[in-house]
């Protein structure tokens, strides 16, 4: 526990030095990756730890981004306040959707969230006067003078904040309840775990985190388009978590960085990255359901076992 914290601090400290060695474009890629780290990790909190698949995670990021954007453009709110309100809005809608379908179990959540993100897309493209439709909504920046480096630190701060929230949740009693619900719903409820409450809670928290990620991302891009709450975006987040490793804390972080950087490379050859990631994610989910982190931990266990076996032989 102690040295894990030290490692994390070292990683964050090293990350703080990144702007020194990177040009504008590479910094942009890193900022994008940080957005995806927030998205994939909070989606993993839901899917990896309570076993529910939401297809509206990108939609909640969109709610966060559009709420904050519309408030700051039309009502003159400070963008920072807008982001907080956007988080609250995403959390509230997430809570409503959660209460509505989680009584009926996981399949209903997946169906409803898929419908929800499609409806959100339709509303955003149709309400042209408010959202500027597919043209995109131009929003103010978070600071008076636009600076990529400052944005990098803001996004890094937001990512670290949401990772701390997720980490605290996973390794608390609540996190234990999460996994109990995932492993055996009936056994958990017979031991006094309120299954529906736990699920709704996980869904609400992950929606709030998605809303925060979306809010910051929108004010970084300065242009909010229906691309943020799209199903393609949802797919990217999902495959980052699946390839990195569902149910592991580090997996989605690795997945987010790897896939975002790879996407930039593949983009040079055309729009194939979605297809490539899809095929890789299919193979991963099929053959190694716990992703890259699952392969790593299996390898470690096997090596330990063989070391123990070798030790016994010698002894």
């Amino acid at each position: 526990m102690k040295d894990k914290r030290v490692y994390a601090a070292i990683v964050v400290a090293l990350a703080c030095l990144l702007p020194l060695g990177l040009d504008e474009y590479k910094l942009h890629v890193v900022i994008n990756s940080l957005f995806y780290v927030m998205m994939a990790s909070s989606w993993n909190l839901l899917a990896g730890y309570t076993g529910q698949v939401s297809f509206a995670h990108a939609a909640f990021a969109g709610i966060g981004a559009y709420t904050s954007g519309i408030l700051s453009v039309k009502a003159g709110f400070n963008p920072w306040a807008g982001i907080v309100i956007g988080m609250a809005a995403a959390g509230f809608v997430g809570f409503l959707v959660g209460v509505l379908c989680l009584r009926m179990g996981g399949i209903y959540l997946s169906l409803t969230t898929l419908g929800f993100s499609e409806i959100l897309r339709i509303i955003i493209t149709n309400e042209y006067e408010i959202t500027r439709g597919t043209m995109g909504l131009q929003v103010p920046a978070l600071m008076p003078v636009y600076s990529k480096t400052a944005y990098f630190y803001i996004m890094l701060g937001a990512a670290v904040l949401s990772l701390i929230v997720i980490y605290k949740m996973i390794y608390s009693d609540t996190g234990l309840n999460f996994r109990a619900v995932q492993n055996d719903e009936k056994a958990a409820s017979s031991l006094g775990v309120d299954v529906v409450r736990i699920r709704v809670m996980a869904f609400t928290v992950s929606s709030i985190l998605a809303g925060m990620a979306g809010g910051f991302y929108g004010h970084y891009l300065l242009l909010i388009t229906p691309e943020i709450p799209s199903l393609d975006q949802q797919f990217l987040v999902l495959s980052m978590a699946v390839i990195g490793g569902l149910g592991s804390f580090v997996g989605p972080i690795l997945g987010a960085f790897t896939l975002e950087i790879l996407a930039e490379y593949i983009r040079g050859y055309g729009q194939y990255h979605v297809l490539v990631f899809g095929l890789v994610a299919l193979a991963m989910a099929r053959f190694s359901p716990r992703g890259v982190m699952g392969i790593v931990s299996d390898y470690k266990r096997r090596r330990n076992q063989s070391l123990i076996a070798a030790g016994e032989l010698r002894g």
């Binding site: 297809f55 996981g106 999902l238 699946v242 989910a285």
Partner: peptide, 11 residues
């Protein structure tokens, strides 16, 4: 059921 949902969505 979680993996069948994820797999068919990716598909």
């Amino acid at each position: 059921e979680m993996y069948s949902l994820i797999l068919t969505f990716i598909l």
